[in-house]
C-alpha cells in the first residue's frame, strides 16, 4: 500500500504530538524529498520571451520579404525542373524559424506538455 503525502503529514503530526520530534522530522523529510524529485516543471524556469521575440521578428521579416517580392518569387519558384529546390527549401527554412517561434510562443503562453 502506498501512503499519500497527506497520510505522511498526519503521521508526522501524530509523532510530533507524542514527543517523538526526530521521527516526525524524518517522516516529513522523506516526504519533501520525494516530492521535490517528483515535482514537475521547476518553478524557477523562466519563460522564453526573448527567444519568442527574436524568432518572431525573423519569421515576420521573412514573410514580409517574400510577400513584397511576390511576383518574382512565384515566377522563379514555379519554373520546374531542378528549381523544385526553391519551394521545398523555403518550406524547410520557414518551418525551422517559424516552428521555433511557434514553440517558444506556446511556452511563453504557459502551454507546456505534461511531464
Amino acid at each position: 500500500m502506498t501512503s499519500t503525502a497527506f497520510d505522511k503529514n498526519m503521521s508526522a503530526i501524530a509523532f510530533a504530538e507524542a514527543g517523538e520530534h526526530d521521527t516526525a522530522r524524518q517522516i516529513l523529510g522523506k516526504t519533501t524529498q520525494k516530492q521535490s524529485s517528483k515535482s514537475p516543471a521547476p518553478p524557477a524556469k523562466s519563460k522564453p520571451y526573448l527567444k519568442t521575440i527574436i524568432f518572431g521578428t525573423m519569421s515576420i521579416s521573412a514573410y514580409v520579404l517574400l510577400f513584397t517580392n511576390e511576383k518574382l518569387v512565384t515566377e522563379i519558384f514555379t519554373m520546374g525542373g531542378w528549381r523544385w529546390v526553391y519551394p521545398v527549401g523555403a518550406a524547410f527554412f520557414f518551418s525551422f524559424i517559424h516552428g521555433a517561434f511557434a514553440s517558444n510562443l506556446l511556452s511563453s503562453l504557459g502551454l507546456e506538455a505534461k511531464k
Binding site: 517574400l66 512565384t74 519558384f77 514555379t78 523544385w84 519551394p87 523555403a90 518550406a91 517559424h98
Partner: peptide
Amino acid sequence: GLSGLIDIRLALLLL
C-alpha cells in the same frame, strides 16, 4: 516541384 506547380505563398500562409 519538378513540374513547378507549388504556389509557395499558399504553402507558407497555411504554415
